[in-house]
Design a protein around this nucleic acid. Structure first.
Lengths: 362, 362
DNA sequence: TCTACATATGTTATCGATAACATTTTGAGT
DNA sequence: ACTCAAAATGTTATCGATAACATATGTAGA
């Protein structure tokens, strides 16, 4: 039967039907199937599905019914091949399970609302090697723009970003030599501000708790800011404990505090690379029955919910995470529009706000 | 120049080059460009890139050099159109910023390692409507399998899942009427076990804190389990506070506790729908200088890091989040293989473990 | 030396949609 | 009734890769 059908008609559609009978599961219906059922051409179906073209109400209804009956779902990869619009942008963040980056992702998603663009998230696990892999596999799917976190990439990763003929936005940092667009702030400067805050409150013997490597570039920048501020304020002795692979956890924050006070028993205040480790440090104090901030003051970074909810509440640096995403999203839309109209927008750097949020722990 | 080129050769490639000169940015190179540069056919390039075929070492090198020089990146959407393998699976979770689901995503990613499949994450924000949208936009990109959280979907969402000719896995729950495969556990049963634990420790006046709606089905199941256990234990009076849109935050947990003790001042223990709200409840007690568990015992759900780090530590239900993802991933690989070999695997339900983790707060 | 089979490569058709262009129908204005 | 633009639909070529088949070369065994 199959062979005969092929010989007589040579028709693709008939062969398709014949195969369908044999297959264990039916093949997913295509646009032509819908078109045939509705008695129109495939092009009309395409137009009906995407809107923007004029279609007779009656025709549209026939098409929608056919789609409903067949359970048809558009195949976008086929569509984007011919239209050269994949309808998505890629965003790489270090970790999903981090409310800061989750907020940035939310900002991005919101900015993309209604633009017909979807967000495709990848997480790099704070590794530039993994980032490189992700950049490549994202580019293979031809995103219309790509957002990355930070300005540190592998050499090949950077080259891939530069060669990709799409807008590139680096976020959460102010890279000295950005690939193109930037939406971020200086983590070092923010950490400096935090040190100054502690100084203003009278603390002098200030320590810093962070991870062991520079994998988390923002964490490394914050330490740098701490060191710079200490030097500027004439506080010669820095007290730094590096412990755990970034991003360090609550528990590691506690352990790090233990080491910090062991090494420098005169410690008056501890700045932690993030609120999570700050909370760990706080509970370590509580276990020792050390009053915070009377015995030791503690500050974090990122304004996670825990810092405003813990007892005592924790002083921290509030970052406009959502806004970083939002602004990146809006910039990206402008840039994509620029590409499409052959009028590329100039490289832009948007600096976002941060603020010291003084709470009970200092 | 452009016109002449077109007239003389009619060659697509030459025209392409001509366009390239005019365009503001060069078009991304294609496989044919690579092939031409390497002096081979496009098919050979394709084979060299995917491995598995025999290619002369010399040829492969020429090709790799050409790729390097042109900065070529494979266009997967074109490839998957002809190969009918998109190389990704979709996973929908309620929220990314939740270590439980992040762990599940990690388990999935790990299981997919080396299979050539990528994970595409979407978050539904605990809304079945948003889930429906996501299911559709995922299916448009033709994933090879889809993993969803929970067994509650919109009618259309469910239909989309059923019609999609790909393996479907529901996780984190044991739906009474699953679409197909399931990897999860009974949230109600786990909550029951937690009530029994409190009962065994002598608590009788036990309350429950959760969100106001059933959006978070797992949260609703937990409340159900609480009610069932109370009834089974002969504890007539249930004490339930519903507050805030799920998932409820730390702060809302604190507020809910305040309401709970206001309404039932004799309260002895509070079970919270998640560890985050449990922590909020704990700090509310601390603000009131109520000793936990002496004045009130507190228990959570999910074994988030905060519960083992807070002071006191919080009793909770440990869920094998990572394992849910891992098992779902492995099941999904088997199922995909089954589809490909025309031997569909039978619908499977894998029940994962949970355990009561008794800590200082009870 | 010749067959037979593996290795290495090329050719053509195709995946499922959309762009670009062509055609037909409709309807308003004169 | 007639013109002309807008509305509605169809036709064909194409996007960039890969499957399937075809072909050429090399090489081991009879």
């Amino acid at each position: 039967m199959l062979a005969i059908t092929e010989l007589i008609s040579g028709g693709i559609c008939l062969v398709r039907r014949a195969v369908e009978v044999k297959a264990a599961r039916p093949l997913a219906p295509t646009m032509s199937d819908v078109a045939r059922k509705a008695g129109v051409s495939a092009m009309t179906v395409s137009r009906a599905l995407r809107g923007g073209a004029s279609i007779a109400t009656e025709t549209r209804e026939k098409i929608m019914n056919a789609i409903e009956e067949l359970g048809y779902v558009l195949d976008q990869s086929a569509g984007s091949l011919s239209s050269k619009r994949t309808g998505f942008v890629a965003a790489l963040v270090p970790s999903l399970n981090n409310s800061n980056f989750a907020d940035t992702a939310r900002g991005l998603t919101d900015a993309l609302q209604g633009s017909g663009l979807q967000l495709l998230l990848g997480y790099t696990d704070y590794s530039t090697e993994k980032e490189e892999e992700l950049i490549e596999s994202m580019l293979r799917r031809r995103p219309e723009a790509i957002v990355v976190t930070g300005g540190k990439h592998t050499i090949r990763g950077r080259k891939l970003l530069e060669n990709a003929c799409i807008p590139v936005i680096e976020t959460w940092d102010l890279p000295p030599k950005p690939v193109r667009h930037v939406v971020g702030f200086s983590n070092a400067e923010a950490a400096e501000a935090l040190v100054k805050h502690l100084y203003a409150r009278g603390y002098r013997k200030i320590g810093f708790i962070g991870g062991t490597s520079n994998r988390d570039t923002r964490g490394a920048d914050r330490r740098l800011g701490y060191e710079r501020a200490m030097a500027k304020l004439g506080l010669k002795e820095t007290r730094i404990i590096s412990f755990g692979t970034p991003p360090i956890s609550m528990k590691q924050g506690g352990e790090a505090l233990a080491r910090l006070v062991e090494q420098w028993p005169d410690l008056e205040a501890a700045i932690c690379v993030s609120d999570l480790s700050a909370f760990g440090a706080l509970t370590e104090c509580q276990r020792r029955k050390w009053p915070v901030p009377r015995r030791i003051a503690i500050a974090g970074f990122g304004d996670f919910e825990i810092s405003s909810c813990s007892h005592p509440t924790i002083t921290t640096v509030g970052v406009n995470c959502y806004d970083i995403g939002r602004q990146a999203g809006e910039l990206l839309l402008r840039a994509i529009e620029g590409e499409r109209t052959q009028k590329p927008v100039a490289a832009e750097t948007i600096v976002t706000d941060y603020e010291i949020i003084a709470r009970e722990s200092t």
